[in-house]
Design a protein around this nucleic acid. Structure first.
Lengths: 216, 216
DNA sequence: ATTTTTTTAGACACAACTGTCCAATCAGTC
DNA sequence: GACTGATTGGACAGTTGTGTCTAAAAAAAT
């Protein structure tokens, strides 16, 4: 149907326009939900004619899928970047607290402030039940890769004798749960916690985690 | 405008009909979101004519408000019932683990299975950002009353010397976080955990909590 | 400069939904 | 049995949204 020329510049401008569409669509889908989002609103926000959207993604469902895919890719990418800051192991208990706090602060700040992360989480929560097939792919690609990666980090901490030996997946989930324990009530109002607040929340969460898991 | 007779039977049938409407509306609002939910769908599900809905709640926003209010009331009611099962204090470490586990199991099972709780949580998550004024009332009435009540329970545990002294609100939130640490990934797929699974998840969460907080 | 492709604005048919209105019906009450 | 208010089904206008189409304009490629 459409034969796109594969010259770089063409692709570049095409991607740029496509990206504008996806960005606008993500924002509006998050805000209004799938049913409430209108293609016209997306077109307006993206500074693009409505027809162009149909040319790119076919129809509304195609737009939704494209947004999810884009957000999921960027999100896991960011996650693995952050995962490289997971603290290295040495045997000082103090550095476990401070190392995990720094890591946790980074994660928490990212979760609360990065548009990609917030939009994706919101879309998954909102529309996950309604369009399970659209999100099954995300499930494999997102949590299906993030959780094991984080679990592996904690497994190596356990292997080094720094924390208690447990199911690493459980450990990772409990770590994340403690990290975000104070966040939900905070975020639901809409105003974002500043970095200092994130640091404080992460520190308190990590303190509980260390109390539970550190080998004294 | 409407002068309702205050005879008991009339009220009863009226409430019954009103309840059918609210039940149907809650289900459909959760499933389709505010924008996606249609009054006709609610009317059909409630076995009621559309006009009756308008008679009762005015318009779509009124329906939404009424549903939130109804769910919030029932939800806090249930919560305070469950809160009575919070374990009494004695000094055996073992009973702290088992007592909190039993309590946590109850909470977790309720959160995952009770329609009221699930619908309310879902509505708040989905539409909370869009209609902040509708939910500010809920915020005061729901978490604004639940959190302090739970925190008080942990405060008395701390006062009795059974757990570490900390900010009780933080303690309560971390307890809830650990309790539900394994739940989100589970629930997003739609199939509910059975009671045995809830018990196991609660036990693991409580184990971490006890490890972090129990005065050995 | 010419050709090719993408983009645009607007019009269009079609469907769905909201909120209102009304005449007919039903369920209790006097 | 007559009366009163709640309820019903259906019709209605007005709005909004989707997805398609077309001719014109803009941009890119040759």
């Amino acid at each position: 149907m459409n034969a796109y020329p594969f010259d770089m510049n063409v692709i570049e401008t095409k991607l740029s326009k496509r990206d504008r569409i996806l960005e606008a669509a993500a924002a509006i889908l998050c805000q209004d939900g799938f049913a409430g989002a209108s293609i016209d609103a997306v077109a307006t926000r993206a500074n693009v004619s409505r027809q162009t959207i149909y040319n790119h993604v076919g129809d509304k469902e195609g737009l939704f899928k494209a947004v999810i895919k884009e957000l999921a890719e960027r999100s896991t990418e960011h996650f693995f970047e952050m995962l490289e800051e997971f603290p290295d192991i040495d045997n000082s208990d103090d550095s476990l607290q401070s190392g995990l706090s720094a890591f946790g602060t980074r994660i928490l700040y990212h979760m609360t402030h990065d548009k990609t992360a917030r939009w994706l989480m919101r879309l998954v929560q909102n529309e996950g039940e309604r369009y399970p097939e659209l999100l099954s792919g995300w499930r494999e690609y997102g949590p299906g890769r993030k959780n094991p990666a984080l679990a592996a980090k904690f497994a190596s901490l356990a292997h080094a004798g720094v924390i208690r030996r447990e199911d690493p997946t459980l450990t990772a989930r409990q770590f994340m749960a403690l990290l975000t324990a104070e966040w939900r009530p905070e975020t639901q109002l809409g105003h974002l916690p500043d970095e200092e607040t994130c640091r404080a929340m992460a520190e308190r969460g990590v303190r509980a985690f260390v109390a539970a898991y550190a080998i004294k």
